[in-house]
Amino acid sequence: MAQESLLVSAFYLLVFTAVLVTYRVLRGPTLPDRVVGLNTITTKVVVIIAIVSVMRGEYYLIDLGIVLLMVNSVGGLLLAKYMERGSRSAT
């Protein structure tokens, strides 16, 4: 079926882009680079969860995506606060 193969190809391409971004997480010169890479990977994982839930017809998985997105945003804000405060005490 055409739509199934399209979704599978989309799944593998998203995993490939996530692996590309992993280079920035491992190699990034500063801390904000790594955080940017992690946020990008998490957004890609949310889209992957949506694709999988449509492919297998199990729509409860989308709750997992929403919760992962909210945890990602809260974690990003927390890391941003941590970076601001650490700089102020260091300098």
């Binding site: 904000p32 957004t43 990602n72 945003s73 990003g76 804000l77 941003a80 601001e84 700089s87």
Partner: peptide
């Protein structure tokens, strides 16, 4: 939710990176 949260987190990270040095 993606359209609301993604720019917000990027804004917070940009300011934190500037303050971080």
């Amino acid at each position: 939710l993606i359209a609301m949260m993604n720019p917000m987190v990027s804004h917070a990270l940009a300011r934190a990176a500037y303050r971080y040095g």
